[in-house]
Amino acid sequence: NKASVVANQLIPINTALTLIMMKAEVVTPMGIPAEEIPKLVGMQVNRAVPLGTTLMPDMVKNYE
């Protein structure tokens, strides 16, 4: 099973992601793959992301 990106803390709306906000975890359903973490740094979330939430592509602005 591949790990996904999971919020390590509450991430407020429009916050630019940093490494300490994210962790890799095997979850179902899968979200953004953990190997994308370096690419996510500096990208903004378009909603508040609660602690423990799996990051999905539609939660990150301009994620492709």
Results as ranks from 00 to 15, higher is better:
22 M>D: 00
28 T>A: 13
10 L>D: 11
48 A>D: 06
38 P>C: 11
12 P>M: 09
5 V>Y: 01
55 L>W: 01
2 K>R: 05
38 P>E: 05
45 V>Y: 00
57 P>V: 10
24 A>D: 07
63 Y>D: 02
22 M>F: 14
52 G>W: 15
57 P>R: 14
13 I>Q: 11
46 N>P: 03
5 V>D: 00
3 A>H: 05
61 K>L: 09
14 N>H: 12
60 V>F: 03
60 V>W: 04
37 I>D: 00
35 E>C: 12
28 T>M: 10
1 N>G: 14
7 A>I: 05
34 A>I: 07
12 P>N: 10
59 M>K: 02
39 K>V: 06
24 A>C: 12
22 M>A: 02
29 P>H: 12
46 N>D: 09
47 R>C: 04
15 T>D: 04
49 V>H: 02
43 M>Y: 09
58 D>F: 15
38 P>M: 03
2 K>Y: 15
10 L>C: 11
51 L>H: 06
9 Q>L: 10
6 V>C: 11
4 S>A: 08
61 K>H: 07
2 K>G: 15
55 L>R: 01
8 N>M: 15
52 G>M: 07
11 I>M: 06
20 I>K: 11
27 V>M: 08
54 T>S: 08
13 I>A: 11
21 M>A: 03
2 K>S: 15
55 L>H: 00
9 Q>N: 05
22 M>K: 00
30 M>I: 09
32 I>M: 04
39 K>G: 05
33 P>D: 09
8 N>E: 07
49 V>T: 07
4 S>E: 00
58 D>H: 10
62 N>R: 10
26 V>M: 13
36 E>Y: 08
31 G>L: 01
12 P>Y: 14
5 V>G: 04
20 I>P: 05
37 I>R: 07
51 L>T: 12
5 V>N: 01
3 A>T: 12
17 L>M: 11
2 K>P: 15
47 R>G: 03
33 P>F: 04
43 M>F: 15
8 N>I: 08
1 N>R: 02
40 L>T: 02
52 G>A: 07
47 R>H: 09
31 G>Y: 02
24 A>S: 08
3 A>I: 04
18 T>S: 07
31 G>K: 01
13 I>F: 11
19 L>M: 07
6 V>E: 02
21 M>E: 02
37 I>E: 05
2 K>W: 15
2 K>F: 15
36 E>P: 00
41 V>F: 14
5 V>F: 01
6 V>K: 07
22 M>G: 01
20 I>Y: 14
11 I>H: 01
35 E>P: 10
36 E>W: 13
43 M>A: 07
36 E>A: 09
7 A>G: 12
37 I>Q: 11
1 N>L: 14
19 L>S: 04
62 N>M: 12
47 R>K: 06
26 V>N: 04
14 N>Y: 05
46 N>E: 04
18 T>L: 06
8 N>C: 14
10 L>I: 12
20 I>A: 04
46 N>C: 15
48 A>M: 14
49 V>L: 12
40 L>V: 09
45 V>F: 02
5 V>T: 06
57 P>E: 08
50 P>Q: 13
59 M>H: 06
34 A>Y: 13
32 I>Q: 01
32 I>A: 02
23 K>H: 07
50 P>C: 14
55 L>E: 00
41 V>R: 12
32 I>K: 01
48 A>F: 06
8 N>K: 11
9 Q>A: 08
57 P>S: 13
53 T>R: 13
9 Q>P: 00
34 A>V: 09
48 A>N: 06
14 N>R: 13
44 Q>H: 10
27 V>F: 06
13 I>S: 09
34 A>H: 14
28 T>E: 15
17 L>Y: 00
51 L>I: 09
20 I>F: 14
60 V>N: 00
27 V>N: 06
55 L>K: 01
31 G>C: 07
17 L>K: 00
11 I>D: 00
56 M>L: 09
62 N>Y: 10
25 E>T: 11
33 P>V: 11
13 I>P: 08
17 L>G: 00
28 T>Q: 07
38 P>R: 08
9 Q>R: 15
22 M>N: 00
3 A>C: 14
21 M>V: 04
50 P>K: 11
35 E>F: 04
24 A>H: 09
54 T>H: 03
61 K>M: 09
40 L>I: 04
64 E>G: 14
37 I>A: 05
26 V>H: 10
51 L>S: 05
51 L>N: 08
47 R>V: 05
18 T>D: 02
10 L>T: 09
50 P>D: 08
64 E>R: 11
48 A>W: 12
9 Q>C: 11
2 K>L: 15
